[in-house]
């Protein structure tokens, strides 16, 4: 029993990381209107930015979060300029294929700049194990969960309470109408893309802290998980994408508990397929995805 509960805690912690990636993903898809495949690479750049910050400035978590957010924000601008800006009125698959190309490009750039070797990220947070009755949770896991909650809350406030948030939501709902209301659609879409990328960068930092390693090719697998979680949430709904991420984390870990870790991805995708068979729109109530 104790063992199953601990697996559940592992699942929740991993789910929170997936959730943060998925939140970033659905912000991008929602605001820009295109599916992206560069998410994994953005995560890697965020992780490496924090790696160098920790190397140069010592283990300051807040600085690391800001740094990885900023670095991924810049990558977000790069991705937006190449993949989206000119293709708003082109068929949707053009931007999609473009993101696949940019993802390969970024992956190879990462290998050239950062080198192909794994890099250690040891003891960023002095590890400690807390026991609550039979539940054991490590300090790293608590930090991860708190960071994700704080960032999600910030995102919610920005979306609901600020002018930026209003423009972002307007662009997300209808680009033409938003343009008529005097919103600069291209700029707003870029900010949306950058915010989503920034969140992915912080997810990269959390992953690197959790696994104590960072390397240039770690993104591709994560990108698919983020995509799966976002699809579960109906692609454009931020809170539902977060729910999707947490559920995937839990289901993976519970699956591993009763079978083998070699089957990890099978649980994720079988779960995704089952949900999509019965609810093609994911958890969201809306039918279909906005164009």
């Amino acid at each position: 029993m104790e063992y199953i509960i601990n697996q559940f805690v592992n699942g929740i912690c991993q789910g929170f990381i997936y959730a943060l990636m998925a939140v970033g993903y659905s912000v991008i898809v929602g605001v820009v209107g295109f599916v992206t495949f560069t998410h994994g690479e953005v995560i890697v750049f965020g992780a490496f930015a924090s790696f160098y910050i920790f190397l140069l400035c010592g283990n300051n978590l807040l600085l690391g979060v800001i740094g990885s957010f900023a670095a991924s924000w810049l990558i977000g601008i790069f991705v937006y300029k190449i993949c989206y800006e000119r293709f708003f009125h082109a068929p949707r698959h053009i931007a999609l294929i473009c993101t696949i190309g940019v993802s390969m490009l970024l992956k190879n750039i990462a290998q050239i700049i950062f080198g192909p070797n794994k890099k250690p990220m040891l003891n960023i947070i002095k590890n400690k194990i807390y026991s609550f009755g039979i539940v054991e949770i490590s300090k790293v896991q608590i930090v991860i969960i708190l960071t994700v909650i704080i960032l999600s809350a910030l995102l919610f406030i920005i979306f609901m309470k600020t002018r930026w948030g209003i423009s972002l939501r307007a662009v997300s709902q209808d680009k033409t109408a938003a343009a008529m209301m005097g919103i600069n659609v291209k700029q707003t879409a870029m900010i949306g893309n950058c915010m989503g990328s920034g969140l992915a960068g912080v997810a990269g930092l959390l992953i690197a802290i959790n696994y104590q390693t960072v390397y240039a090719t770690m993104g591709s697998n994560l990108s698919i998980k983020a995509f799966a979680a976002a699809v579960l949430g109906g692609l454009t709904s931020v809170p539902l994408a977060a729910l999707g991420g947490i559920l995937i984390g839990i289901i993976e870990n519970m699956g591993i508990t009763f079978t083998s870790a070699s089957l990890r991805d099978i649980f994720t995708f079988v779960f995704l397929i089952i949900i999509l068979i019965f609810k093609p729109q994911g958890f969201s109530k809306k039918k279909g995805v906005r164009p």
Binding site: Q7, N10, G11, C13, N210, Y211, E252, N253
Partner: peptide, 8 residues
């Protein structure tokens, strides 16, 4: 990349 469940 995540071995926590195997380790548990």
């Amino acid at each position: 990349t995540d071995f926590s469940s195997v380790i548990s």
